[in-house]
């Protein structure tokens, strides 16, 4: 069901949502999350699509905040989509004029009560997510350093503005790698003296993995540059020889270690919906992210000075 409301108010939107629910037989009953997406007209389509796919695992009320021309009169246009083959509801909120600077006043009345709030910036996000008005509404704030023009700088800024509940999709992208790396060290291995993470130049996930390994293992991990795609190799240098996972094509990885047969592992890159679904699975502060981010910022500062 699609409802278009032009030059509307939050009261009318709420009434329309309730009416839509009654007509469709209650699709909000299972909503477990409010997801605020802060996007512009170019990025909203993909972001909302990813959110409705992730919504199969985490049914949510999606509130997409799209800022339009900030000059001129304040005006609110809303587009409500509900029951379109996905659970939950999606509301696109287009804000014109000075209203776009006070988006939180529009979003707050539209949140489902008693239900957690997550804010996601699919594009360039604020340096201090919790300080932004739409971030302040949420207990979980998801940025994406990879979307920044210089991801390394974005990560450093996120580190200094960190508040519990912040997280970044660059960190989410690292999960499959981190999981494989942890499983690798579940096996017996020699003492690890350091290593290297090799990826494309601007790859914040690789930066975070290197920082994570450095922090957890207490030995330095270098960050080297390759042509990609994404992360291409991680090597542990150990007293019993190197342990290497290499993934030259972004899909198929091989695990190589001294005097053991080479093993093949599927390690595909995940799409936005899968990343978002993982991100929505837990809403408590991610301390490992905080520590890795701090480690990265400390390393970057040391290099800079």
């Amino acid at each position: 069901m699609l409802i278009d409301l032009t030059d509307t108010t939050t009261g009318d939107i709420r009434a329309a949502l309730t009416k839509a629910r009654d007509q469709l037989g209650g699709p909000t009953t299972g909503v477990v999350l409010n997801l605020i997406i802060v996007a512009d007209e170019t990025s909203q389509h993909d972001a909302v699509r990813a959110a409705s796919q992730a919504g199969r695992e985490h049914p949510c009320r999606v509130l997409a905040v799209i800022a339009r021309d900030p000059r001129g009169e304040s005006r609110l246009d809303a587009e409500i989509r509900t029951g379109e083959g996905a659970p939950g509801q999606t509301v696109l909120l287009r804000m014109y004029g000075p209203m776009s600077l006070h988006a939180d006043s529009v979003v707050a009345p539209l949140l489902v009560p008693d239900t957690p709030v997550v804010t996601w910036w699919p594009g360039t996000g604020p340096a201090a997510p919790s300080a932004s008005p739409l971030g302040a509404l949420a207990q979980r704030r998801v940025t994406d350093a990879a979307a920044a023009s210089v991801p390394g700088e974005a990560l450093a800024a996120l580190a200094s503005g960190y508040r519990p509940g912040d997280t970044d999709l660059a960190w989410t992208r690292a999960t499959t790698w981190r999981s494989l790396l942890a499983a690798t060290l579940d096996q017996q291995h020699g003492e690890i003296s350091g290593g290297v993470v090799i990826a494309e130049e601007h790859n914040p996930s690789a930066d975070l993995i290197a920082a994570w390994l450095t922090d957890r293992l207490g030995v330095p991990f270098r960050r080297d540059v390759s042509g990609g795609p994404g992360i291409t190799q991680v090597t542990f240098s150990s007293s019993e020889g190197d342990i290497t996972i290499s993934r030259p094509d972004g899909r198929n990885a091989t695990l190589t270690r001294a005097d053991q047969p080479e093993r093949y592992v599927a390690l595909h890159r995940r799409d936005a919906a899968e990343l978002l679904a993982e991100e929505l699975r837990r809403l408590d502060p991610d301390e490992i992210y905080r520590e890795s981010l701090a480690q990265f910022a400390a390393g970057a500062a040391a290099q800079g000075s």
Binding site: T172, T175, R178, S179, L181, A182, A183, L185, D186, Q187, L213, R216, L217, G218, E278, R282, D286, E287, I288
Partner: peptide, 16 residues
């Protein structure tokens, strides 16, 4: 394994 931490809920337990 230092890479495993009970607080790190993203990394699933993988069979050996």
């Amino acid at each position: 394994n230092p890479l495993r931490d009970p607080r790190d809920r993203r990394i699933p337990q993988v069979a050996g």
